[in-house]
Nucleic acid binder design. Structure first.
Lengths: 233, 233
DNA sequence: TGACACCAAGTGTGATCACACATAACACCA
DNA sequence: TGGTGTTATGTGTGATCACACTTGGTGTCA
């Protein structure tokens, strides 16, 4: 019936367009705080860096702009947005609203394998902390939350949450250097895992809210303390 | 000092790019249910329709795709997404979460002129109903809600809400034909206006939630009744 | 009759070029 | 010295072309 099956053993080839590859590459870098807030990304410079024409870069940058991961700056160039306290509070409130909803939907939908994978992400987070691997921590932390939200089976909700994380990404790295913050986050994550294993919706939601509140508080402190001796910017 | 000021009386010129004009034009049509769900939009057809090259159309369509107002369909063409009950419930829950948040933020920020403008939108909605002007009703209804949410002073929140409305837009027109739905909506809107004038956050939020619930319920009924004798699609 | 190959039309993707605009630096003059 | 015109550079925007791919129709052969 299927003639192609006779060929056997051939690997599937990547069908991702250039635009998608560039998008995900930039996305990961923004999410993991690779770019400095305020840094400008021009079409031509990115195109030259990745060795392609400006066309796919245009599409990738515009997509990030629509997702609020980049904003138009000085002369219509796209820049990594800086975070002020007001915007931070807006994002925090939205995260509480949306991620609470996601957890409530996710808890009854999580199976045994989901819990197992989640615990692996939890372990990876913990191990990254003890080995001072900030990149690994950021990646595992996102994987932990993302896995929960993905279980909600709500694509629109997921994309909205991802957009918020993308906006905060450039600043996550800053608070991730503080070990007190990390230890506190691990305690909260431990509680969340426990609540999910008990299928305790209330406790799981409260855990997520506590996690968001802690991250917001630490980042707010960092922003305000920084504002003092760098108001010139 | 300012030499240009001597010229006096000159109007500001429009700086909107072609891509933006096309985007907003398509956006309005989607929001007001001009396009049929399932309808495909190709770059070349739109380009020919508006008398422009494919480039700005590409950007406009891609932007709508990122906002989930269009989805990739059959052969990578962009189509107006159809709504199933599952997606409807997801959108409804997100609307409750986000629009509640927006109202809570908006209430203390609304001034006298805001309330006046809001009442004008309310009146316009009512007048559109008595004159059977569905287009006018949809426009005024969105203006009513949009004005409240805009007062929250939260641009990210606003864009998230707009994205959800954009996704529901093609179906709003369908329930707007039912006068019982419209009358009920007007009662709820009246309560919302009253709550806002009293700066009653709780009542205003409950009004918004009631409005969302009513719209969701009616649309859910419409979708399920339609599913019966059109399951072939 | 059914499976297969072929062809034509339509599609998104990407490259390349031309253009308008914004900015900053510099020379110029009152 | 301070405002003004000029120019060079870099930017996004948009047009045009070439290409790969999908799809639907048609012809062909077993």
């Amino acid at each position: 019936m299927h003639r192609a099956a006779e060929a056997g053993g051939l690997e599937a080839v990547s069908k991702a367009t250039l635009q998608e590859q560039i998008y995900f590459q930039l996305r990961n870098r923004i999410m993991s705080g690779f770019f400095q807030p305020g840094q400008a990304l021009s079409t031509r410079s990115v195109a030259e860096a990745v060795g392609v024409s400006v066309m796919p870069v245009r599409d990738a940058l515009r997509r990030l702009e629509v997702e609020n991961a980049l904003v138009v700056g000085h002369n219509r160039m796209l820049v990594v947005p800086k975070l002020d306290v007001q915007t931070l509070m807006e994002i925090s409130e939205m995260r509480v609203a949306l991620e609470s909803l996601a957890v409530e939907r996710a808890v009854p939908a999580m199976g045994e394998t989901d819990l197992q994978r989640l615990y692996e992400h939890f372990s990876a987070t913990s191990e990254s902390i003890v080995s001072d691997d900030i990149d690994g921590y950021l990646r595992a932390n996102w994987a932990f939350h993302n896995h929960i939200y993905r279980c909600a089976g709500a694509p629109l909700l997921l994309s909205a949450i991802e957009s918020l994380w993308l906006r905060m990404g450039p600043y996550f790295r800053l608070t991730a250097a503080d070990h007190q913050h990390l230890d506190n986050a691990m305690l909260i994550h431990h509680d969340i895992v426990g609540a999910l294993e008990r299928y305790d919706v209330i406790a799981a939601r409260d855990g997520i809210i506590a996690d968001i509140s802690a991250a917001t508080g630490d980042l707010k402190d960092w922003l305000t303390s920084r504002d003092g001796h760098e108001a010139a910017e």
